[in-house]
Computed example of a mutant assay.
Amino acid sequence: MKVLVLGGTRFFGKRLVEILIEAGDDVTIATRGRAADTFGDRVTRVQTDRQEKSSLEALAAYGPWDIIYDNICFASDDASDAVQAFSGLARRYVLTSTLSVYDQGREAWKESDVDTLHYQVTPGRSRDFSYAEGKRQAEAVLFQQSDFSAAAVRIPFVIGEDDYTERMLFHVKQAREGTAVQAYNPDARISFISSGETARFLFWLGRSTLEGPVNAATAGTLSLADIMQTVREVTGTNADIEVLPASSEPDKQRLTPYAVEEDYGLDISRAEQAGFKFSSITNWFPDLIRALDKQVTG
């Protein structure tokens, strides 16, 4: 297959490109060219400014493609530019979306709870919206205005040894430093997914016939209390949690990156019923914490 990846040089995007190469696909990666990659001559590289329509139009000359993966689309105008630039050049389009399209308050949001197939489109760039609304807008444009088969994968917090944001690593560092992590509700249930599983799911979704929004998350949820209990077991430290009143001002240096106040998770039954088998988070999460601890302790 001929595949275009918009953004594919780090984290799960990099893992996706590796899977595509291993599958024998003809892969083009389009980025700003600021990050080095390890793909060698196995991919075609095109320097592209995702936020400039003219840049996407120039990229279109490298098409057509069987699948386009878009990891760097954050608003309605971003999606509209792609819909116009790639019209007639893509059989399948997969947008990386987010759990953030939903509000907090449920452990298992269903795709139908936020219906972007019938969502009102408001023109704008990422600066004009919150992150969550920008992604809702991007989905809406893609589903309502494109001439290709389109799906948007709604993923939760992505974790892994290769997470450049170091959000999970933060908790191990705090424990090793003997500093309590701050949180508002350490018992709130949260969905996660590994970077590797995210890449495998994107690969699978690109070759599937599912359209519209599709939730993807590792089976099972964790609370911050669960996370810190595993950190305690791995590091042999206290790994304390300081619970904050809802109205209090946190110490931004100690506040957990997963500072949700209510349950925040995804129902993954649609993808499972279509044939994707998600891993269980209890099977691999302790190993991840052990690997992160080695990064801290050497």
Rank of each mutant, 00 (worst) to 15 (best):
L222S: 04
Y93S: 03
G24A: 10
A36H: 08
G178H: 10
I190T: 10
S194D: 08
G160I: 01
S191N: 09
V101E: 05
A85P: 08
E133F: 06
A180F: 05
R189T: 05
V153E: 06
Y102D: 02
E177W: 08
H118L: 07
D115W: 01
F192M: 13
L142W: 02
A151R: 01
R42F: 01
Q104L: 09
A60F: 01
E22A: 15
L6H: 01
I227V: 14
R176L: 15
L20A: 01
S269G: 13
G124A: 07
L95Y: 03
F86Y: 13
D115R: 09
F276V: 02
F192C: 05
E262Q: 14
A183P: 09
Y264H: 05
R254N: 10
Q253F: 11
S76V: 02
S280H: 13
E52A: 13
N215K: 03
R92T: 01
L255E: 11
R50D: 04
Q47F: 06
D263N: 15
L255W: 14
I193Y: 01
V158I: 14
R189N: 09
V243S: 07
F148E: 08
A216F: 01
S191C: 06
Q295M: 15
I193G: 03
D113E: 15
F11E: 00
E242G: 08
A188Y: 06
K110G: 13
T237K: 15
T209R: 15
F285C: 05
G24C: 10
G8Q: 00
V121S: 04
A239W: 01
L59I: 07
G196C: 04
F170W: 11
F201N: 02
E261P: 10
I19Y: 04
S269H: 15
Y119Q: 07
A75G: 12
G220I: 02
P257Q: 09
F201Q: 02
I29W: 00
V234Y: 00
R270H: 08
K294H: 14
